[in-house]
């Protein structure tokens, strides 16, 4: 214990100055984390948290960043009549990581193929937009990784990257 003139106290000004300096750095890191979260790069809302891609006449809204064990959704909108029904393929890697907890509307059939899970939906011939929503939940943590190509009625998306944060 170091004595400081009239008082016996264990002060360490150098350590304290270093602590204040490191604290400020940590504050900047925390602020950066908040900004990154507001942008959506930590998932759950924000401009960059989702990716909108086209597959032929369909538009897919897919998470770019998910959170482990947190529910999310994947939406498919098709803006053309589909008298023969709609067929959506979730790539195998996606199906391996994300558990599909519910699909609205219910598919008429689901087939497990080597490429992934193929969902078939009945659809009317009337014009107008059809919307299908998959409730999904990531079952494990994943660094940004390409999931493969989603497919809607034979039209494919690009190979999309998705990350799952702890």
């Amino acid at each position: 214990m170091s004595s400081t003139s009239s008082i016996d106290i264990d002060v360490d000004r150098r350590l304290q100055e270093r602590h204040w300096f490191i604290s400020r750095i940590l504050w900047v890191i925390m602020l950066a984390l908040v900004l990154v979260a507001l942008l959506g790069l930590t998932g759950s809302g924000g401009a960059l948290s989702r990716q909108h891609v086209a597959a032929g006449a369909a538009e897919l809204d897919i998470p770019r960043v998910g959170r482990w064990s947190a529910t999310d959704h994947l939406a498919v909108k098709v803006d053309q009549p589909a008298p023969n029904g709609l067929e959506i393929l979730l790539p195998a890697k996606f199906a391996e990581i994300f558990a599909v907890e519910a699909v609205s509307p219910r598919p008429s059939s689901v087939t497990a193929t080597a490429e992934g899970h193929r969902y078939t939906f009945d659809s009317s011939a009337e014009p107008g937009q059809r919307s299908i929503v998959f409730s999904i939940r990531p079952s494990r943590i994943l660094l940004s990784s390409h999931m493969g190509r989603f497919e809607v009625n034979g039209a494919r998306t690009a190979d999309l990257p998705i990350a799952v944060l702890p």
Partner: peptide
């Protein structure tokens, strides 16, 4: 211990206010 708990800091020392602290 120093890293986790830190050490005491003078805010006023011998009547002198440590504005920086």
């Amino acid at each position: 211990s120093r890293l986790i708990d830190g050490r005491p800091t003078f805010l006023i020392h011998d009547g002198q206010i440590d504005e920086r602290a």
